[in-house]
Protein backbone atom coordinates (compact mmCIF):
# COMPACT_ATOMS: atom_id res chain seq x y z
CA UNK A 1 0.00 0.00 0.00
CA UNK A 2 2.85 2.31 0.93
CA UNK A 3 4.44 1.46 -2.38
CA UNK A 4 1.29 2.43 -4.26
CA UNK A 5 1.08 5.73 -2.38
CA UNK A 6 4.68 6.50 -3.30
CA UNK A 7 3.94 5.70 -6.92
CA UNK A 8 0.93 8.00 -6.94
CA UNK A 9 2.87 10.78 -5.22
CA UNK A 10 5.26 11.26 -8.12
CA UNK A 11 4.53 13.60 -11.03
CA UNK A 12 3.78 10.71 -13.38
CA UNK A 13 1.73 8.90 -10.72
CA UNK A 14 -0.51 11.89 -10.13
CA UNK A 15 -1.09 12.32 -13.84
CA UNK A 16 -2.03 8.66 -13.93
CA UNK A 17 -4.71 9.28 -11.29
CA UNK A 18 -5.98 12.26 -13.30
CA UNK A 19 -6.07 10.04 -16.41
CA UNK A 20 -7.81 7.09 -14.74
CA UNK A 21 -10.41 9.29 -13.03
CA UNK A 22 -10.80 11.00 -16.41
CA UNK A 23 -11.63 7.67 -18.07
CA UNK A 24 -14.54 7.19 -15.62
CA UNK A 25 -15.73 10.75 -16.27
CA UNK A 26 -15.42 10.22 -20.03
CA UNK A 27 -17.47 7.01 -19.87
CA UNK A 28 -20.04 8.79 -17.71
CA UNK A 29 -20.38 11.64 -20.22
CA UNK A 30 -20.75 9.22 -23.14
CA UNK A 31 -23.39 7.24 -21.19
CA UNK A 32 -25.19 10.43 -20.19
CA UNK A 33 -25.26 11.62 -23.82
CA UNK A 34 -26.55 8.23 -25.04
CA UNK A 35 -29.29 8.24 -22.37
CA UNK A 36 -30.34 11.80 -23.09
CA UNK A 37 -30.65 11.11 -26.80
CA UNK A 38 -33.68 8.91 -25.99
CA UNK A 39 -35.50 12.27 -25.92
CA UNK A 40 -35.70 11.98 -29.73
CA UNK A 41 -37.59 8.70 -29.46
CA UNK A 42 -40.26 10.46 -27.45
CA UNK A 43 -41.39 11.47 -23.96
CA UNK A 44 -42.10 7.92 -22.80
CA UNK A 45 -38.65 6.68 -23.87
CA UNK A 46 -36.83 9.44 -21.98
CA UNK A 47 -39.06 9.09 -18.92
CA UNK A 48 -38.61 5.29 -18.90
CA UNK A 49 -34.85 5.73 -19.10
CA UNK A 50 -34.95 8.26 -16.23
CA UNK A 51 -37.18 5.97 -14.20
CA UNK A 52 -34.81 3.05 -14.79
CA UNK A 53 -31.96 5.18 -13.45
CA UNK A 54 -33.90 6.50 -10.45
CA UNK A 55 -35.10 3.15 -9.18
CA UNK A 56 -31.72 1.49 -9.66
CA UNK A 57 -30.17 0.20 -6.41
CA UNK A 58 -26.82 1.39 -7.80
CA UNK A 59 -28.02 5.00 -8.06
CA UNK A 60 -26.44 6.32 -4.88
CA UNK A 61 -23.35 4.20 -5.25
CA UNK A 62 -22.77 5.72 -8.70
CA UNK A 63 -23.64 9.23 -7.49
CA UNK A 64 -21.21 9.07 -4.55
CA UNK A 65 -18.60 7.41 -6.74
CA UNK A 66 -18.88 10.17 -9.33
CA UNK A 67 -18.65 12.79 -6.61
CA UNK A 68 -15.43 11.22 -5.32
CA UNK A 69 -13.99 10.91 -8.84
CA UNK A 70 -14.85 14.51 -9.76
CA UNK A 71 -13.28 15.74 -6.50
CA UNK A 72 -10.09 13.75 -7.10
CA UNK A 73 -9.84 14.80 -10.76
CA UNK A 74 -10.41 18.46 -9.91
CA UNK A 75 -8.08 18.52 -6.90
CA UNK A 76 -5.17 16.88 -8.71
CA UNK A 77 -5.83 18.91 -11.85
CA UNK A 78 -5.56 22.16 -9.90
CA UNK A 79 -2.50 20.93 -7.98
CA UNK A 80 -0.67 19.91 -11.15
CA UNK A 81 -1.60 23.21 -12.86
CA UNK A 82 -0.30 25.26 -9.93
CA UNK A 83 2.97 23.29 -9.94
CA UNK A 84 3.29 23.87 -13.67
CA UNK A 85 2.89 27.60 -13.20
CA UNK A 86 5.51 27.75 -10.48
CA UNK A 87 7.93 25.85 -12.72
CA UNK A 88 8.33 28.97 -14.89
CA UNK A 89 7.73 32.12 -12.91
CA UNK A 90 9.56 34.43 -15.32
CA UNK A 91 7.79 34.40 -18.66
CA UNK A 92 9.38 34.93 -22.07
CA UNK A 93 9.32 38.51 -23.34
CA UNK A 94 8.69 37.38 -26.90
CA UNK A 95 6.10 35.16 -25.39
CA UNK A 96 2.92 33.74 -26.68
CA UNK A 97 -0.13 35.86 -27.40
CA UNK A 98 -3.06 36.01 -24.98
CA UNK A 99 -4.92 33.47 -27.13
CA UNK A 100 -1.98 31.07 -27.04
CA UNK A 101 -1.75 31.42 -23.27
CA UNK A 102 -5.47 30.80 -22.91
CA UNK A 103 -5.08 27.80 -25.22
CA UNK A 104 -2.21 26.45 -23.12
CA UNK A 105 -4.32 26.85 -19.97
CA UNK A 106 -7.47 25.47 -21.58
CA UNK A 107 -7.66 22.32 -19.45
CA UNK A 108 -7.65 24.28 -16.19
CA UNK A 109 -10.00 27.02 -17.44
CA UNK A 110 -12.49 24.68 -19.11
CA UNK A 111 -12.22 22.26 -16.17
CA UNK A 112 -13.09 24.90 -13.57
CA UNK A 113 -16.01 26.24 -15.62
CA UNK A 114 -17.27 22.70 -16.24
CA UNK A 115 -17.14 22.04 -12.48
CA UNK A 116 -19.26 25.14 -11.80
CA UNK A 117 -21.58 23.99 -14.57
CA UNK A 118 -21.93 20.51 -13.01
CA UNK A 119 -22.93 22.02 -9.65
CA UNK A 120 -25.45 24.33 -11.34
CA UNK A 121 -26.72 21.52 -13.58
CA UNK A 122 -27.34 19.13 -10.66
CA UNK A 123 -29.05 21.92 -8.69
CA UNK A 124 -31.09 22.87 -11.74
CA UNK A 125 -32.31 19.61 -13.20
CA UNK A 126 -31.75 17.01 -10.44
CA UNK A 127 -32.42 18.85 -7.18
CA UNK A 128 -34.88 21.31 -8.69
CA UNK A 129 -33.58 24.52 -7.21
CA UNK A 130 -35.97 27.31 -8.20
CA UNK A 131 -38.33 24.71 -9.66
CA UNK A 132 -42.03 25.21 -10.31
CA UNK A 133 -44.88 22.72 -10.56
CA UNK A 134 -43.74 21.38 -13.95
CA UNK A 135 -40.61 20.05 -12.29
CA UNK A 136 -42.61 17.60 -10.19
CA UNK A 137 -44.98 16.53 -12.97
CA UNK A 138 -45.40 12.79 -13.46
CA UNK A 139 -46.49 11.19 -16.69
CA UNK A 140 -49.45 8.85 -17.14
CA UNK A 141 -47.40 5.85 -15.93
CA UNK A 142 -46.45 7.65 -12.71
CA UNK A 143 -42.83 8.18 -13.87
CA UNK A 144 -41.23 11.57 -13.26
CA UNK A 145 -41.86 13.59 -16.41
CA UNK A 146 -38.25 14.40 -17.23
CA UNK A 147 -39.26 15.25 -20.79
CA UNK A 148 -41.54 18.08 -19.61
CA UNK A 149 -38.83 19.15 -17.16
CA UNK A 150 -36.27 19.50 -19.96
CA UNK A 151 -38.59 21.13 -22.47
CA UNK A 152 -39.70 23.68 -19.85
CA UNK A 153 -36.16 24.43 -18.73
CA UNK A 154 -34.70 24.86 -22.20
CA UNK A 155 -37.49 27.19 -23.31
CA UNK A 156 -35.51 29.91 -21.52
CA UNK A 157 -32.83 31.09 -23.99
CA UNK A 158 -30.26 31.99 -21.30
CA UNK A 159 -30.46 28.49 -19.81
CA UNK A 160 -30.33 26.79 -23.21
CA UNK A 161 -27.34 28.83 -24.38
CA UNK A 162 -25.44 28.42 -21.09
CA UNK A 163 -25.83 24.65 -21.44
CA UNK A 164 -24.63 24.82 -25.04
CA UNK A 165 -21.61 26.91 -24.00
CA UNK A 166 -20.79 24.46 -21.23
CA UNK A 167 -20.99 21.55 -23.70
CA UNK A 168 -18.58 23.31 -26.08
CA UNK A 169 -16.15 23.63 -23.16
CA UNK A 170 -16.65 19.92 -22.44
CA UNK A 171 -15.72 19.36 -26.08
CA UNK A 172 -12.51 21.37 -25.74
CA UNK A 173 -11.65 19.50 -22.53
CA UNK A 174 -12.33 16.08 -24.06
CA UNK A 175 -10.46 16.82 -27.27
CA UNK A 176 -7.24 17.14 -25.29
CA UNK A 177 -8.07 14.35 -22.84
CA UNK A 178 -8.65 11.42 -25.14
CA UNK A 179 -5.23 11.51 -26.77
CA UNK A 180 -3.49 12.64 -23.58
CA UNK A 181 -4.85 9.79 -21.51
CA UNK A 182 -3.45 7.21 -23.91
CA UNK A 183 -0.09 8.98 -23.65
CA UNK A 184 -0.21 9.08 -19.84
CA UNK A 185 -1.25 5.44 -19.64
CA UNK A 186 1.75 4.62 -21.85
CA UNK A 187 -0.19 3.37 -24.91
CA UNK A 188 0.87 6.16 -27.20
CA UNK A 189 2.94 5.27 -30.22
CA UNK A 190 3.68 7.31 -33.33
CA UNK A 191 1.86 4.73 -35.47
CA UNK A 192 -1.34 5.19 -33.43
CA UNK A 193 -1.26 8.99 -33.56
CA UNK A 194 -3.93 9.31 -36.24
CA UNK A 195 -6.01 6.55 -34.64
CA UNK A 196 -6.15 8.40 -31.31
CA UNK A 197 -6.70 11.70 -33.10
CA UNK A 198 -9.65 10.19 -34.97
CA UNK A 199 -11.02 8.53 -31.85
CA UNK A 200 -10.87 11.77 -29.89
CA UNK A 201 -12.70 13.68 -32.65
CA UNK A 202 -15.32 10.93 -32.83
CA UNK A 203 -15.99 11.06 -29.08
CA UNK A 204 -15.95 14.86 -28.94
CA UNK A 205 -18.30 15.29 -31.90
CA UNK A 206 -20.72 12.67 -30.57
CA UNK A 207 -20.85 14.18 -27.08
CA UNK A 208 -20.97 17.83 -28.19
CA UNK A 209 -23.42 17.43 -31.05
CA UNK A 210 -25.56 14.98 -29.07
CA UNK A 211 -25.83 17.11 -25.95
CA UNK A 212 -26.06 20.50 -27.69
CA UNK A 213 -28.78 19.27 -30.00
CA UNK A 214 -31.31 18.93 -27.15
CA UNK A 215 -31.42 22.56 -25.94
CA UNK A 216 -31.10 23.68 -29.59
CA UNK A 217 -34.02 21.51 -30.67
CA UNK A 218 -36.15 22.87 -27.82
CA UNK A 219 -35.12 26.46 -28.57
CA UNK A 220 -36.10 26.07 -32.20
CA UNK A 221 -39.36 24.44 -31.18
CA UNK A 222 -38.68 21.03 -32.74
CA UNK A 223 -39.64 19.10 -29.62
CA UNK A 224 -42.39 21.24 -28.09
CA UNK A 225 -45.25 19.70 -30.02
CA UNK A 226 -44.78 16.43 -28.21
CA UNK A 227 -45.56 17.90 -24.78
CA UNK A 228 -49.27 17.36 -25.07
CA UNK A 229 -51.39 19.05 -22.43
CA UNK A 230 -48.41 20.72 -20.77
CA UNK A 231 -48.87 24.35 -19.93
CA UNK A 232 -45.40 25.68 -20.54
CA UNK A 233 -44.62 28.34 -17.93
CA UNK A 234 -42.31 30.27 -20.18
CA UNK A 235 -45.19 30.78 -22.58
CA UNK A 236 -48.06 31.31 -20.16
CA UNK A 237 -46.69 32.21 -16.77
CA UNK A 238 -43.60 33.50 -15.02
CA UNK A 239 -40.37 32.33 -16.59
CA UNK A 240 -38.58 29.31 -15.26
CA UNK A 241 -35.45 30.68 -13.61
Amino acid sequence: MNRLLNLLNTSIGRKLVVAISGIFLLLFVIGHALGNLTIYIGPSALNSYAHWLQQSPMLWLVRLGMLAIVTLHLWLGIKVSLENRSARRIAYQAGSSLWQRLFEQRMLISGLIIFIFIVAHVAHLTLGAAADATFYRVDERGFVDVYARLVTAFQTPTIAWSYITAMLLVGIHLKHSVRALFQTMGFFHDNYFSLFEGLSWLIVLFVVIGLCSIPLAIQFGWLNHAVAGLSIPSLTGPRFA
Binding site: E83, A87, H176, Q183
Partner: peptide
Amino acid sequence: EGFGNCSNH
Protein backbone atom coordinates in the same frame (compact mmCIF):
# COMPACT_ATOMS: atom_id res chain seq x y z
CA GLU B 1 14.34 19.70 -9.31
CA GLY B 2 10.99 21.46 -9.60
CA PHE B 3 10.28 20.93 -13.30
CA GLY B 4 6.62 21.14 -14.31
CA ASN B 5 4.44 18.15 -15.15
CA CYS B 6 3.89 17.00 -18.70
CA SER B 7 0.38 17.90 -19.80
CA ASN B 8 0.76 16.68 -23.36
CA HIS B 9 1.14 19.99 -25.17
